[in-house]
């Protein structure tokens, strides 16, 4: 049996993901064979499977293709400035500590212009779930070189091939103190969903890198076919190695992609540590910020 639906609006509301998305904003802006939509679907699925109270979840994005995710999720959603998603989310989390705050943004946004915020949020173990979609390039602005562009890969500002060392993001996150570090490609929908779900249940700075195809720029500039071909490439080249040393998981151009969960530790998040510390040193004088936020009413 199959059903091909003509009534788009009505059908969209029946889609199992509908409660988690702003279906009135579909279709989204992403190109055909772009992987971001798949990552977003996995995140929505994880929210469902982790039984998250959607009213107590906020999502913050920066700027760029992945920066648009916040605008499509049916949560309290913030589309902030370029690179500032993590500090913005830090404010949201500390302003109302009961919220589950997710940062969902791209490689250029979080590790390029926002790199300083990234390392410091990891260092202080800010209670944020950070989902970084890595397509190896600045997509929205036209395919410029990113801090993640592999060596020798072409971009519109490295037309003769990239000669700068890229970031190994799981290594960066782990060495700065992230308590949960994983990498998947957007082909690993089940494992990715499970990883999101697992990270939702953890506390502290949780970092998940998701490799996703950019057909319009990365694939085209490097003559790799379409996003579809990249998905096939992930199929052939992704290697799952749980517990791999993050130092060893750097990505070379069109070489193997080590996936898996690399770090999973339990350490108190920044605000938990703050509470415990003040309780210890200030005793009864300490008045913690209420879970629902700072003083608002008489």
């Amino acid at each position: 049996m199959s059903v091909t639906i003509e009534e788009v609006e009505a059908a969209a509301q029946k889609h199992p993901v509908a409660p988690y998305l702003r279906m009135d904003r579909m279709p989204h802006i992403w190109c055909p064979t772009c992987g971001i939509g798949t990552v977003m679907k996995c995140y929505a699925q994880a929210l469902e499977e982790a039984d998250v109270d959607m009213d107590k979840a906020a999502i913050v994005s920066g700027i760029g293709c992945t920066g648009r995710v916040a605008g499509y999720m049916n949560l309290d959603a913030f589309h902030s400035t370029h690179g500032r998603a993590i500090p913005f989310a830090t404010g949201v989390k500390l302003g109302r500590p009961e919220l589950l705050v997710t940062v969902f943004s791209g490689d250029g946004d979080l590790s390029g212009i926002g790199g300083n915020h990234f390392i410091h949020a990891a260092r202080r173990n800010m209670d944020l779930l950070v989902i970084l979609v890595n397509n190896f390039i600045y997509g929205m602005t036209g395919g410029q070189n990113a801090p993640t562009t592999p060596l020798t890969a072409k971009s519109s500002t490295m037309p003769f091939g990239n000669f700068e060392e890229p970031f190994n993001l799981p290594h960066l996150a782990a060495s700065c103190g992230a308590v949960y570090v994983a990498r998947w490609t957007c082909l690993h929908t089940r494992r990715l969903t499970k990883s999101f779900q697992e990270a939702i249940d953890r506390r502290g700075f949780r970092f998940i890198e998701v490799i996703a195809p950019c057909s319009t720029l990365y694939a085209r500039l490097n003559r790799l076919g379409s996003g579809f071909d990249l998905m096939r490439f992930y199929h052939d080249s992704a290697e799952i190695k749980h517990g791999a040393d993050p130092k060893e998981v750097g990505i070379d151009f069109q070489d193997k992609i080590i996936c898996g969960k690399f770090i999973d530790e339990d350490r108190p998040a920044m605000h938990e540590r703050m509470d415990a510390h003040y309780k210890k040193v200030l005793g009864d004088k300490y008045v913690p910020m209420p879970p629902e936020g700072g003083w608002l009413h008489e």
Binding site: L21, M23, T38
Partner: peptide, 8 residues
């Protein structure tokens, strides 16, 4: 198919 479809 539902999980992998980027366009819902």
């Amino acid at each position: 198919c539902e999980m992998i479809c980027p366009d819902f």
